[in-house]
Design a protein around this nucleic acid. Structure first.
Lengths: 335, 335
DNA sequence: CTGTTAGCGCCTTCAA
DNA sequence: TTGAAGGCGCTAACAG
C-alpha cells in the first residue's frame, strides 16, 4: 500500500473551485459563508476524504489540546482510576491525555514538565511531586500546572485533593474506639504533604484520647504489598493495631499474618486507605478510608481546561478539598 | 505572571549574530558547523532558555513522535500493566503515549483511529478490536497500526500476542487431571479472536480425554468481578469446575462461594487467567495462566517504532506469539 | 460573502 | 562552512 500523501486544504479548494480561506471558514464553522458554497466545500471534503492536519492547526493556534498527566506508576490502582476518569472527561471536551510515569524520579518529572516548554502539551497535571516547588514554578510561564491529590503549601496553583487529615483522624479514632492503645503508624516518603497531613490527623486522634506519648512506632517506606509483608515482621510485640496508610500495605500485612497464623483482627487490627477493590475481596476484608477519586479527577480536569480556555492567570492558589469516609470492615472489628 | 512569549529560533539567531539556519544546524547536530559558532549558539540558547517548538518541528518533519494506545479501560490491571511497560519503552525512545479508552465502543475506536488521519499521532496500537478489519484497514494508509493481545486473522498488520489456545488447553487439562468431568466454560464478548482460540484449547483438552460431548455449559459476558458473582449463581448443580477466562471472574466466583459456604476447591474448582496480583492474595489463591505481559508490551512498542522509523510498508502480516504458563494454586488442588 | 496575503516556527535545499 | 529563501498546512486580517 502506498502511504497516503496527506490531502491539504489546497486540494479541497481546487476540487470545489474556491479559495483556501473559504474552505477554512467552513472547517471552522464561520458565519458568512454562502449556503451553496458551504455545501460545495463539504461535498469536496467528503469526496476527497479530507481531514485537517491538526499539527498545522496547532502551530497556527498555538494550542495542542493535549494535557500531560504525571503519575508515579499507572499500575497503582489509585492512579489508574484517576487517569481513567481524567481521560474520559478530557476526551469529551476534545482533549488528549499524555501519560507520563515519573517512577518517583526528579529527573523524569522535569523532563515531562519540559513538554510545556516545547509546546507538546498545553498544560500539566501533577499527581505527585518529586521536585521542590521553586523548581516547578519556573514552568508556570509556559502553561498551567494543576495539582491533584498531592500538594505543596507554597504552590500558587490550583490544588484538588481530599481531606487527608480527616482520613487518618477518622481511622485512628475508630481503632482507639475498638480499645487499641498501642497503634503503629506507617508512612510513605518523607517529602509528601499528604503524609504530613495524615500524621497530623493521627496525632490529633491520639491526643483526644490522651494516648499521645505512648505511641511512637513509625514504620517507613510503606507503599506496596511487599512493604506490608516486610512491615508485618517489623511490628513490635505490644502493638495491637496498625494504621497502614494504604490498602496495598494492609493487604501485605494480612497476607503475612495469615501465613504466620496471626489472627486479624483478634491479635492485630489493620486499617487501610483508599478503599480499593481488593480491600473488599480479601479475607478478612479491610476497614479503610474511601476517597472520591472520580470526583477529584473530574474537578481537576475541569479546572485545567477552564484555565486553558480562559485567559485567566494560572498562578493563583485555589483549593478544592473533598471529604473522605470511613468504611468499616472485618479487619478491625469482630463479626 | 506574564505568559512567556515563546522564544523562537530567530531570537537565538539574533542573540548570537548568526542565521536561523546555523542555529537549526546546531539544534539538529549537523556536521559542518564551526566549533566556535556552535558554542556561541549553545551559549545563546542557554542564556535565553530557548527550547525548540516541537509543533513546528512536527509540521516540518511530518512526525509527531506520539503513539495512540487504544484500550477498553485503563483500570483493568491487564491493560494498565501493558500501558505501564509501553510508556516506559516509548519514553526511552523519545515517544509519547496517548491513552485512548474505547470502553468497548465502535464509535470511540473510530474516533481515536481518526487521530492517524489528522496526524495527531504517528501510529496506533490496538489492544482490543471493536470494528471489523475492513473498516480498520482503511486507516492503514495514514500510518502503521499494530495489534497487541487481541488480533484478527484477516488483518495484514503485525500482531503481538500470547498463545491463548495453549493457555486454555493447559488450564483445562489441569482441571481434568484433578478428576473433573463436568467443567463450565466462561467467555467474554462474541467477536473476540482471543475467545475463539481459548475455546479451541478448551475443546482440545476435553477431546483428548474423551469428554467432548458432555461439556456444554457456557457462561457468557464474563469480564468483571461482578460478572463472576452473577455466574456463580448460574452454575448448574453438577458442575465441579469452572474455566473462568479471567482472574476477575474467578475472584467474583470465589467471593460469592465464600458467602454461600461453598468450599473451594472441594466443592468447586476455579481457574483464572492472567496471573494478576489479586490471584495470589485472595484466599484460596487462584490457579491461573501467566502471560508475559511486559514482554508483549515491549515487543509491541519495538515493532511499532521500527515501522515508524524505517520506511518499510506497514501492511505486512507478522506474528509474534509468546508462551503462557500454568500457575497452580489453591483454587484447584487440595493442600 | 470571498479571495489575497502574510505569517505561525522550523528545516533544508541551493548558492555563495 | 554559512546564509537566503521557500514551504510544511493552516488561519486571520484586510481588501474587495
Amino acid at each position: 500500500m502506498t502511504e497516503s500523501k496527506g490531502l491539504t486544504i489546497n486540494d479541497v479548494a481546487r476540487k470545489c473551485g474556491l479559495s483556501r480561506s473559504t474552505v477554512s471558514r467552513v472547517i471552522n464553522n464561520h458565519p458568512y459563508v454562502a449556503k451553496e458554497k458551504k455545501e460545495a466545500v463539504l461535498k469536496a471534503m467528503e469526496e476527497l476524504g479530507y481531514k485537517p492536519n491538526s499539527v498545522a492547526q496547532q502551530l497556527r493556534s498555538n494550542k495542542t489540546h493535549a494535557i500531560a498527566v504525571l503519575v508515579p506508576r499507572i499500575t497503582n490502582p489509585f492512579y489508574s482510576r484517576l487517569i481513567e476518569k481524567m481521560e474520559t472527561e478530557a476526551s469529551l471536551l476534545g482533549y488528549q491525555i499524555i501519560i507520563c510515569q515519573t517512577r518517583y524520579s526528579k529527573e523524569r518529572e522535569v523532563d515531562y514538565l519540559d513538554m510545556l516548554r516545547s509546546r507538546k502539551v498545553d498544560g500539566v497535571i501533577l499527581t505527585s511531586i518529586q521536585n521542590d516547588w521553586k523548581d516547578i514554578e519556573t514552568y508556570l510561564q509556559y502553561g498551567p500546572i494543576v495539582m491533584c491529590n498531592e500538594f505543596d503549601d507554597q504552590a500558587t496553583i490550583p490544588s484538588i485533593r481530599v481531606n487527608q487529615m480527616d482520613g487518618s483522624y477518622l481511622g485512628t479514632k475508630h481503632l482507639i474506639e475498638q480499645g487499641h492503645k498501642k497503634i503503629a503508624y506507617c508512612k510513605g516518603g518523607t517529602k509528601s504533604n499528604i503524609g504530613k497531613k495524615r500524621r497530623e490527623g493521627f496525632n490529633k486522634a491520639l491526643k483526644e484520647y490522651n494516648l499521645s506519648s505512648v505511641n511512637d512506632v513509625v514504620l517507613t517506606n510503606a507503599f506496596s504489598i511487599e512493604d506490608g509483608k516486610r512491615i508485618f515482621h517489623e511490628l513490635p510485640e505490644d502493638i495491637t493495631a496498625v494504621f497502614t496508610g494504604g490498602d496495598e500495605v494492609a493487604v501485605g500485612i494480612i497476607f503475612e499474618a495469615r501465613e504466620n497464623r496471626v489472627k486479624i483482627p483478634e491479635q492485630l487490627a489493620v486499617i487501610g486507605f483508599d478503599n480499593q477493590v481488593i480491600s473488599e475481596l480479601i479475607n478478612p476484608s479491610i476497614t479503610t478510608i474511601n476517597q472520591p477519586i472520580e470526583e477529584v479527577a473530574s474537578k481537576t480536569m475541569e479546572v485545567m481546561i477552564q484555565k486553558l480556555e480562559s485567559d485567566k492567570p494560572s498562578n493563583i492558589k485555589e483549593i478544592y478539598e473533598f471529604p473522605v469516609k470511613l468504611i468499616v470492615r472485618q479487619s478491625t472489628v469482630l463479626e
